[in-house]
């Protein structure tokens, strides 16, 4: 079924356009410019606060502060102490990572819509989250240029994240869910299967997104200090580990 442009002219009482007139018609005001995905994206900086993991609900997004890992608790403490011990190995990259102060970014306090995290179907135990946190820590240690790693749902809710800079985690989670979905769609339309990574190569860094499982995804943010191969490899290994932990 084709639509005829003049069909509804009478419906609105507009002057009907017949075929003879159509040769003199003005073109509709249309532009066909490519979409600029980098334009007008407003990124406000979130507040920076500290928070204890033990106080966080399992379903709330959790960010890691290196001090959190030393707080007295049961299994979480044991696991995090183990991480600290590993960090003392004479590996310059790991030593550097242990001296880094991680920050927690609140879920975008400047956005005025209601946060819905309490309704999420993802519901992991504190033990699962603690082990996942170790994996994020490990990622940051191995990739010296990495300054952010996020676990979020494929529809854009952040679950767990580790950042070294003030970045809008809530927006990044949401935007990367769009990007990953678009990447997977483009792969399908290009007759290619299994989109493995969506890679943003920028002048001073990279953002890599990949799936963990059907409902979770991982976003890795790095400066150029980590080469792309390293970032992809470590990102893939981390996602594989997280898939087992958060299954």
């Amino acid at each position: 079924m084709k639509i005829k442009k003049g069909k509804l002219a009478a419906f609105f009482g507009f002057k009907s356009q017949n075929q003879e007139e159509s040769t003199e018609q003005k073109s509709l005001p249309v532009t066909d410019k490519p979409i600029d995905f980098g334009e007008d994206i407003h990124t406000e900086q979130p507040a920076v606060i500290d928070s204890a993991i033990a106080d966080s609900k399992a379903t709330e997004p959790v960010a890691i502060n290196s001090e959190n890992l030393l707080e007295p608790s049961t299994e979480i403490e044991e696991k995090t102490v183990e991480v600290e011990e590993k960090a003392t190995v004479a590996d310059p990259l790991e030593v550097e990572a242990t001296n880094t102060e991680f920050k927690m970014a609140t879920p975008e306090p400047t956005m005025d819509y209601e946060h819905e995290e309490e309704h999420l179907i993802v519901n992991y135990s504190k033990e699962q989250l603690a082990v996942s946190e170790e994996k994020l820590e490990e990622f940051m240690r191995v990739c010296p240029g990495a300054y952010g790693v996020l676990i979020s749902t494929v529809d854009g809710h952040e679950l767990l994240y580790l950042v070294k800079r003030d970045i809008p985690v809530h927006k990044i989670s949401t935007m990367n869910s769009s990007l990953l979905a678009l990447g997977e769609s483009i792969a399908r339309e290009s007759s290619q299967k299994l989109c493995q990574f969506v890679i943003l190569e920028n002048s001073d860094g990279r953002v890599v997104s990949l799936r963990i499982n059907d409902i979770l995804m991982l976003t890795c943010i790095s400066s150029k200090d980590t080469n792309l191969g390293m970032l992809l490899s470590v990102g893939r290994n981390t996602a594989g580990d997280l898939m087992k932990i958060l299954s």
Partner: peptide, 26 residues
């Protein structure tokens, strides 16, 4: 993609875009 927000009561949700094409009589 899979919708993880129970409050929305829907299994899947659009997170990128939908796209379709339609040809006019002209």
């Amino acid at each position: 993609v899979a919708n993880t927000d129970l409050s929305l009561g829907k299994e899947r949700t659009t997170v990128g875009l939908d796209f379709g094409l339609l040809t006019l009589a002209s």
